[in-house]
């Protein structure tokens, strides 16, 4: 394709990204820097601030029987609710990728099943710095140390995501770069069980060209950025595999834990 077409594709992906995702990297960085004019996020760093935060932060969903459940389970349930929301947002974004909805419907399902968590962990990096992460659409900031202080196995959930995020954030991507990158991730033609790989690879190929051009324009001083970013796709698969293993452990050891049906569908026979 001509470079004008590739720029139009990049612009389109950036627009659908802004439409599909309520919190962007730019917004998140502005909140963390205290530059939004809104209230600064409520910091959760121990059990007392967690209790205060739970009263102060307006969560989108309040799970039932919350009061009596253990802290770790409550936090985990909120992560689940947010993940389900994210799957819905990512689905909307995927549908906006030119050609995606014309793929075999079963292949669309497979691409989402394998892609959503890689997208979630890429985008989670935008909400993180080395000390913690923004929660509840920027109303709160939960510290990394607090998450590490939770009891086993819950203390092991977020730490690998922070480690990945620090490396990923080091690439200095902007929201437009990320938008095109996650489209590339979704359109991976090597997911298990795909029926018709060729049209997926063709779609991914034009998005890859759009990404290469976008990075060249927005980061002229980092000629290796495209290659470095593609390497991150391997790290993402590793993180998802470990995440799935950890969830299996949690499901076995935590009798109180229930897994949302949508997440059950995604995790079932994943890796």
């Amino acid at each position: 394709p001509e470079s004008a077409d590739l720029r139009a594709l990049a612009k389109h992906m950036f627009e659908s990204y802004n439409k599909a995702f309520p919190i962007t990297k730019a917004k998140s960085r502005a909140i963390m820097a205290g530059k939004t004019g809104d209230k600064s996020p409520f910091v959760i760093y121990d059990m007392n601030s967690l209790k205060a935060g739970e009263e102060r932060i307006k969560f989108k969903q309040t799970p039932l029987q919350e009061q009596n459940t253990e802290v770790e389970i409550r936090i985990f349930q909120r992560c689940q609710f947010r993940s389900v929301e994210a799957v819905r947002e990512i689905t909307e974004f995927a549908k906006s990728i030119p050609g995606f909805i014309n793929l075999d419907l079963n292949d669309q399902v497979t691409l989402l099943k394998y892609g959503v968590h890689e997208v979630i962990f890429s985008m989670l990096a935008s909400l993180m710095n080395k000390d913690g992460l923004l929660i509840a659409a920027g109303q709160g900031f939960m510290t990394r140390e607090f998450l590490k202080s939770l009891r086993k196995p819950f203390c092991d959930i977020m730490e690998p995501k922070f480690e990945f995020a620090m490396k990923f954030n080091g690439l200095g991507l902007n929201d437009c770069d990320i938008a095109i990158f996650i489209a590339v991730v979704i359109l991976s033609g090597d997911r298990p069980g795909l029926i018709n790989v060729k049209p997926i690879e063709e779609l991914q190929d034009s998005i890859l060209q759009a990404l290469a051009l976008q990075l060249k324009i927005s980061h002229p001083d980092s000629p290796q950025l495209f290659a470095k970013l593609l390497q991150k796709m391997t790290d993402l698969r590793q993180i998802v595999t470990e995440h799935v293993q950890l969830l299996h452990t949690i499901r076995k050891t935590e009798a109180e834990m229930s897994l949302h049906p949508l997440l059950q569908e995604i995790y079932k026979d994943l890796y």
Binding site: V84, R88, T91, E92, K113, L262, E265, I266
Partner: peptide
């Protein structure tokens, strides 16, 4: 198809509730 019925539904109509 049965195995992924919520994903199917989201793909066809993402405005339908997911029963959070």
């Amino acid at each position: 198809k049965e195995k992924h019925k919520i994903l199917h539904r989201l793909l066809q109509d993402s405005t339908s509730p997911v029963d959070l």
